[in-house]
């Protein structure tokens, strides 16, 4: 990749904006189109772009497998945990009204947490799937 400076500089320039846009989509999903799914995918696409331009080895160092696995399970845990928290606060499973003093505020907190969990899992899943595909050796053959 050393010989393609425009690609490298362009990518470095773009990635912060992609990440920023993903965060905007994540936290603005209540008011306009967007939410955890879209944000997770856009956030992942920044890392996929990085991996395509700079090589999978660099991308693996930027986002190690351990962190990806942690985020993957943490997202689902946050989602289900929000449900259990609502249960513990005296409501029903995934009924966020009990999470705060006023029901609407509770709903707001609940949706925020849930969307955050969704975004985290989708991000980790998409990057994991891509990295696994990209680091597969094309000449690999099973010996039997």
């Amino acid at each position: 990749m050393r010989e393609k400076p425009i690609l490298r500089v362009g990518t470095k320039f773009l990635i912060p904006f992609i990440l920023m846009f993903a965060l905007y989509v994540q936290f603005h999903g209540d008011f306009g189109p967007g939410g955890g799914f879209q944000a997770g995918v856009i956030f992942a696409s920044a890392f996929i772009l990085y991996a395509i331009v700079f090589g999978i080895a660099h991308a693996r160092r930027a986002l190690p497998a351990g962190i990806r696995r942690l985020l993957l399970s943490l997202g689902v845990l946050i989602y289900a945990g929000t449900g259990v928290l609502a249960l513990a606060e005296g409501g029903r499973f995934l009924d966020y009204s009990s999470l705060a003093a006023q029901p609407v505020l509770g709903q707001h907190v609940g949706i925020f947490l849930v969307e955050f969990g969704v975004g985290m899992t989708v991000f980790a899943a998409m990057t994991t799937i891509f990295f696994v595909f990209a680091s597969r050796d094309p000449s690999a053959r099973e010996q039997d």
């Binding site: 209540d30 008011f31 189109p33 969307e115």
Partner: peptide
């Protein structure tokens, strides 16, 4: 009941939270 102006988000995350989980 839920709050967000985007009804799709309300339904996705709150009314049909089980689906999304």
């Amino acid at each position: 009941e839920v709050g967000p102006p985007n009804v799709v988000t309300s339904v996705l995350a709150s009314y049909r939270g089980y689906d999304t989980l």
